[in-house]
């Protein structure tokens, strides 16, 4: 009944790899998992010797495994990188405070410096306060936009060369599906890129070393290594749109495990016709951080919160950007459309 490891043929296999179908024992699985990430890092040329790299750390399984493996490979293969942990505190009671405790423990366990930036400190708004204004619908938009910029700003404070995040194969495939469903060509091209380019001033390149690692393997790696990670659902996200893409993808995976890599491959190979207008990267005229519009999304959402018009930035209101920039008052009709609606 027990299955032997198909690699060493000595020990009992503990998992069947979804990517290859191989049955591996713990040690062979650890080695295969780590070596594949190393292969991803070297073939994509993600890092250069001497660079300082910030690991986006949330306390969850992906960033915990990422921090563990990055430290391990940095030592095993002498990448010559200086690693540190960068966390964002969204200000969600009962969720982020607990997960940050996990990151602080990771800091001790892995002996990596830790920097925490908070929404309250950067934007003056905690996620709890945002949800009070916006309601339970659409609040993920604020959180996602703010977190992305917060990570950039935290990385600039630390003066790092690169940011790496724990996005895994399942995450990337989910994003491909969501962008296909939304018909968002610009994001479809960007979401499969393993690293962002460093063109333009002030943008710190990001990369995803776990891009080809299946979530099942990340979970089992963390479990067998007994890594300390936090796994509670965000209290504001139960209705997040991504949950539907995720459930669909898991159903696909149970039918054919290679579906996840196949979806990523499809996203990578999608081509856009010549002449299709694509967003151009620039900087925000108000805060100076990266933006493809005159006013970046963070500033639009923040202006909406500060004016008591949270729907600003949700939906299409580009015509109002000029007024916002000039700090002009909006007409009563314009304001009514942007006020939160009670359900």
């Amino acid at each position: 009944m027990p299955v032997q490891c198909s690699n060493c043929e000595q020990k009992r296999a503990v998992l069947k790899r979804p990517k290859t179908g191989h049955s591996l024992c713990k040690d062979c699985f650890f080695w295969a998992f780590e070596e594949e990430i190393h292969q991803t890092i070297t073939s994509a040329g993600l890092f250069n010797r001497g660079e300082t790299v910030a690991i986006g750390a949330s306390g969850g399984k992906d960033s915990t495994v990422l921090a563990h493996v990055m430290k391990l490979l940095n030592e095993r293969y002498d990448y010559g990188l200086k690693l540190l942990l960068l966390s964002v505190d969204e200000g969600i009671t009962g969720y982020r405070d607990d997960s940050l405790e996990t990151v602080k423990r990771n800091q001790q366990q892995y002996e990596l410096p830790l920097k925490i930036v908070s929404y309250e400190e950067l934007y003056g708004w905690t996620m709890d306060a945002i949800v009070k204004q916006v309601g339970l619908k659409n609040n993920c938009t604020f959180c996602g936009v703010f977190r992305r910029q917060a990570l950039d700003r935290g990385a600039m404070m630390l003066n790092v060369d690169k940011i790496c995040t724990g996005h895994n194969a399942d995450d990337v495939a989910e994003t491909v599906l969501m962008n296909v469903l939304r018909g968002d060509i610009a994001r479809l091209r960007r979401c499969t890129a393993i690293s962002t380019s460093s063109e333009g001033d002030g943008a710190i390149p990001r990369c995803k070393p776990l891009k080809y690692a299946y979530e099942k393997e990340i979970v089992l790696y963390a479990y067998f290594k007994k890594l300390d990670y936090f796994s509670t659902e965000c209290i504001y996200s139960p209705n997040a749109y991504r949950g539907h893409a995720r459930a669909f993808l898991k159903d696909l995976e149970s039918v054919r495990p290679s579906a996840i890599i196949d979806v990523i491959h499809s996203g990578e190979t999608l081509s856009v016709k010549e002449g299709v207008k694509m967003p151009v990267q620039g900087t925000c005229s108000r805060c100076g951080y990266i933006s493809s519009q005159a006013l970046c999304k963070s500033c639009v959402l923040l202006e909406g919160l500060n004016r008591g018009l949270p729907k600003l930035g949700i939906g299409k209101h580009h015509r109002l950007h000029g007024k916002i920039l000039a700090q002009e008052p909006l007409t009563e009709q314009e304001e009514r459309k942007l006020k939160a609606v009670d359900f």
């Binding site: 998992l15 069947k16 979970v219 089992l220 479990y223 459930a247 995976e253 149970s254």
Partner: peptide, 18 residues
């Protein structure tokens, strides 16, 4: 179980155990 929930029997993937 719903796809996305991993099952281990005596610390081995249930896909290997039947």
């Amino acid at each position: 179980v719903r796809p996305g929930i991993l099952v281990l029997i005596n610390d081995a993937d249930w896909e290997l155990m039947g």
